[in-house]
């Protein structure tokens, strides 16, 4: 069995764990009226805030940005849920197994991607017409695909943060919240990226959501195909880069844990 096939199998079995966690966290009712309701309210709030503050021309881009952001917010939950392995006491057992840690952790929190893409799809497709954005039937698959790309790319970035907080589990929620709030601020969601100084623009340039929002904005405006697929390709490349970084980070984490003794049995 090739290493790739073996890794994909591990991702698949790990994803079952993710599904079990999701089923234990939500019922259909609490997900629909609790989680989705909360996220739709957030999208409406930020879009209307743009209008109230006297920037009605930005309402469209704010809506797109905040709707796409809902899948990123959820994807970033991978930061916190990666730490669950420590809570379950399975981390040393995972390190002691012959499997790579990265595929395990990649599969372990996939529930957030599925839920996030569903949430942002509802936001874009159901709320869009209220803010003057109508989608054609042909555009709908592209809408979903772009969100999937953005969610996966952001998830890979979140995996790298997840490795970092494995050694500081108490920071798990702070890290994920700070990360997505920074994205909302710097990546063209609430204000254009150009508003920020160069160092922050540089940070935004390596985060997949920046390009995901650009691609979705171009798609909603019926722009040329190149204006959609070029930023979409950037999301894909950045996501792959962050995934590669996560592979390295998990190996470094395991080796560091072996050196400093931070992998306790039962933790």
């Amino acid at each position: 069995m090739s290493a790739l096939v073996q890794s994909l199998r591990v991702v698949g079995y790990s994803a079952r764990n993710a599904a079990a966690d999701f089923a234990a966290t939500y019922t259909w009712r609490s997900w629909t009226f609790g989680w989705v309701g909360r996220m739709l309210s957030q999208v409406v709030f930020f879009t209307l805030a743009g209008r109230v503050l006297g920037a009605p021309d930005q309402a469209r881009s704010r809506f797109i940005g905040n709707a796409v952001m809902t899948c990123v917010v959820e994807a970033m939950m991978v930061v916190a849920s990666s730490v669950w392995e420590r809570r379950a006491g399975t981390l040393p057992l995972l390190v002691a197994s012959p499997a790579d840690l990265a595929p395990v952790f990649f599969g372990r929190s996939l529930q957030w991607i599925a839920s996030g893409v569903a949430t942002s799809s509802i936001a874009l497709l159901a709320l869009g017409p209220l803010f003057g954005i109508d989608w054609t039937a042909v555009q709908i698959p592209a809408v979903v695909l772009l969100q999937l790309l953005t969610a996966v790319g952001s998830y890979c970035f979140g995996l790298v943060l997840g490795v970092l907080v494995l050694n500081a589990p108490q920071l798990r929620n702070i890290a994920s919240n700070v990360a997505y709030l920074a994205m909302m601020s710097f990546c063209g969601i609430q204000v254009p990226v150009d508003y920020w100084p160069a160092p922050i623009r540089l940070l935004a340039a390596v985060l997949p959501v920046t390009y995901g929002v650009r691609a979705m904005t171009a798609l909603s405006a019926g722009g040329p195909a190149g204006a959609v697929w070029r930023p979409a390709a950037a999301v894909l490349l950045l996501g792959a880069g962050w995934l590669a970084a996560a592979f390295v980070a998990f190996r470094v984490f395991a080796e560091r844990g072996r050196r400093d003794g931070s992998l306790e049995f039962g933790q």
């Binding site: 079995y13 006491g89 399975t90 049995f265 039962g266």
Partner: peptide, 16 residues
């Protein structure tokens, strides 16, 4: 600790 409590016994073993 050391088990996935939200999985069944069979699912735990499949996973490992």
């Amino acid at each position: 600790r050391g088990l996935y409590s939200r999985l069944t016994a069979r699912q735990n073993l499949h996973y490992w």
